[in-house]
Amino acid sequence: MARKKIRDSDDGGASWLVTYSDMVTLLLTFFIMLYAMSTIDAQKYAAIVASFSKEMNPEAYYQQMEAEKAEEEIIDSNIEPEEIDDIDVLYTLLKQYIDENELSNQVQLNKSKEYVFIRFSDSVTFRGYSDILEQRGKGVLDVLAEGLVLVDEYIEEVIIAGHTAKVEYDMTDIDRSLSTNRANVVLKYLENKDVIDPSKYLAIGYGLYSPIADNSTSEGRAKNRRVEIYISRKGYPISYTKIIQDTINNSKANDNDLKYRRETYIE
């Protein structure tokens, strides 16, 4: 008796395709999810596009590069130097130190677009008729040196002026020498810090001839005994009389103080 032949199932041979297609679908879904979670690095993407552009059309690529370079140069040329106020760094450092150490009554600080001005009372820098620098004065000068090294290239000059007060007895010669010595002591202290070109420093001794207050009172004489430092911005040579007038206008000095100023200081 002949054996009956068993027929193959109609779908048995293709059953593996179902599993394979499911796996491919899952993998595709997985990679789509990874792509959605990732971020595109714009610079790398631009570099890839640029490399393809260079290979496919080198002439157009180099033309685009030249155009971008020209655009950057135009943008840079529109930036004016006045927009970068570097001398503010110096002012900010000094202001912070003066406030933190409660020296605002002994150290006056002003600035404009042309200069930074510092006025030290004698209680901070020197005592009596001494030309030995006080420790508190050194502290302020140390901070000044830290600021000068940051803005050296933007500084025109640094003028240090020493002043004394007129007393009842004649000490004109001593006052002139003392004010000069004090200015030189401050200059030498800063110069030894080696923070800026030493040729930018200038020390001047005015003696008793630059009063800002009445010499007939002890309070007035205390104001007149002082050291002043003027740091001018590059391109703005210092006008001593202009700075004096500015500091008068910006200070808390009363009308009685102003009456005793020399007329030559008023432009």
Rank of each mutant, 00 (worst) to 15 (best):
Y115H: 12
R127C: 01
F126N: 00
L141T: 09
V149G: 02
Y189I: 09
G147L: 09
D194P: 00
V143Y: 04
D142R: 13
Y206M: 01
I174R: 15
R182C: 03
L141I: 02
T180V: 02
Q135F: 12
I155P: 12
L190R: 10
E156R: 10
S179M: 01
L190W: 11
V143H: 03
I155L: 08
Y169Q: 10
Y169N: 04
V195G: 03
I196G: 10
V149W: 00
D194H: 15
I132F: 01
D175G: 08
T180K: 09
A161I: 15
M171N: 12
D173F: 12
Y189R: 13
V185C: 07
S112Q: 02
K166V: 09
E156D: 12
V195F: 13
T172G: 11
A203M: 00
V186F: 01
I118V: 05
V149M: 10
K166W: 02
I132K: 04
A165D: 14
S112A: 12
L190N: 04
I204S: 05
M171T: 07
K113Q: 06
Y169M: 12
E157L: 10
G147M: 11
I132W: 03
K166Q: 14
A203V: 08
A145G: 03
L133F: 05
Y154M: 02
I159K: 13
Y115F: 03
A161E: 11
R176P: 02
D152F: 05
L187G: 02
E191V: 04
R127W: 00
N184T: 07
A183I: 00
I132A: 09
V186D: 01
S112V: 01
T125P: 00
G137C: 11
D173G: 06
S199Q: 06
E191T: 11
D142N: 15
K193R: 13
E134S: 03
L178F: 10
A165S: 15
V116E: 02
Y201T: 02
S179D: 01
A145M: 11
K193E: 10
H163I: 00
A165Q: 08
T125S: 15
G137E: 06
V151Q: 13
S112M: 04
V185T: 05
R176M: 11
L144N: 08
P198K: 14
R127T: 09
R136F: 02
H163F: 07
F120A: 02
V143T: 08
E157Y: 12
G147D: 08
N110S: 09
E146P: 05
I132S: 09
R136N: 08
R136T: 12
N181V: 01
E114I: 02
I174G: 05
E168Q: 13
L190Y: 06
F117I: 01
F126S: 00
E146M: 15
V140M: 11
D131A: 14
Y201C: 01
G162F: 05
H163V: 01
